[in-house]
């Protein structure tokens, strides 16, 4: 199947000399939800900007639906909708006027029925005559989504769509994104929230320092990202790990007063309960338990470190 987006060896070096993208290659399949994860400054927004025509690449090639983004910019841009990270929207216009403007700007015939349906789906219909400046932050973000969808794009880029929005609105947006996918829209989103990627994405890509570190199916990656650490604070020091626990990914702390157990939330057999039962059968007493899940930041650091190690 021809990918809807094919990015080949894209480079971007700013005038300051900062290399934002360093040979990024990536393909996105039609109809999938692709989550691009990465720490601040990793190159997520630059990559999206390059596909959408906001950033001039220093090298490489991008095609959308088989069309080169420079040679066929009209056809390509017609197919793409972009929801930017910032709440960049003209404050003095009404909701209705701004979505009509967006539809016209992208070269589409007026279609009030479609726009009315779009606003209803985004719970904006009641506010259609309201000036945007009078809307809440969450509503403004919905307006941005409505503008991006006003010309019926086949690909939708969502750059940090739920940054700074409350939990309820976040859930609403996830539901809306799923509906769009059902309609055949390909969705590429960037996010800091691991749960967002976990909940919605089919595939996940991780970018760091302008390079794609990995691209994996969500299920595979979640197993890797879903690791937790259980610390068992022992009643008495332990010199060595008993043989019954040899199959566990377990270690003893330097002061011999804690057992540190790494396990995967996805794997029920390796869970906490079986370990505690075994400790009880071994008469190993404990005073307290604590668990910790790696933050996304830590996972990025570990992925980058692994990559550097592999390169050496």
């Amino acid at each position: 199947m021809q990918p809807i987006i094919a990015i080949e060896n894209i480079q971007k070096t700013y005038k300051s000399g900062f290399k934002a993208l360093n040979g990024v290659s990536l393909t996105i399949q039609p109809g999938e939800i692709f989550a691009l994860l990465g720490p601040n400054g990793a190159g997520k927004t630059t990559l999206i900007g390059t596909v959408c025509g906001l950033v001039r690449p220093s090298g490489g090639r991008i095609t959308v639906d088989g069309l080169d983004i420079h040679d066929n910019y009209r056809e390509v841009r017609q197919r793409i909708g972009l929801v930017p990270q910032e709440l960049a929207v003209s404050m003095f216009e009404s909701v209705w006027d701004t979505v009509k403007f967006s539809r016209g700007l992208f070269g589409c015939k007026p279609n009030d029925d479609y726009l009315a349906e779009l606003l209803k789906n985004l719970s904006l219909w009641e506010k259609k005559d309201t000036n945007i400046m009078a809307l809440s932050g969450g509503m403004k973000r919905r307006v941005l989504i409505a503008k991006a969808l006003a010309h019926e794009p086949r690909v939708l880029f969502l750059d940090e769509p739920t940054a700074g929005v409350d939990v309820e609105l976040r859930r609403d947006m996830w539901s809306m994104i799923r509906k769009l996918r059902e309609q055949g829209v390909t969705i590429i989103l960037t996010t800091h929230y691991i749960e967002e990627a976990e909940d919605m994405a089919d595939r996940i890509g991780v970018i760091s320092k302008g390079e794609i570190i990995l691209v994996e199916q969500k299920h595979d990656l979640m197993q890797q990202l879903g690791k937790k650490t259980l610390t068992v604070h022992l009643a008495e020091p332990l010199d060595k790990i008993p043989e019954l626990l040899a199959n566990y990914d377990i270690s003893i702390s330097d002061d011999s007063l804690s057992l540190i157990y790494q396990y995967s939330t996805a794997d029920q057999q390796d869970g906490v309960a079986p370990l505690l039962e075994k400790l009880a059968s071994l008469n190993i007493g404990y005073q307290d338990l604590s668990t910790k899940q790696s933050s996304l930041e830590e996972i990025f650091v570990s992925l980058v470190a692994e990559k550097v190690e592999a390169a050496q």
Binding site: L54, R77, P84, A88, S90, G107
Partner: peptide
């Protein structure tokens, strides 16, 4: 104004 408010992204990403 679009430059100042950031809304120029829409003009630059449109097929115009």
């Amino acid at each position: 104004m679009p430059k100042f408010t950031g809304t120029i992204y829409e003009i630059l990403s449109a097929p115009v």
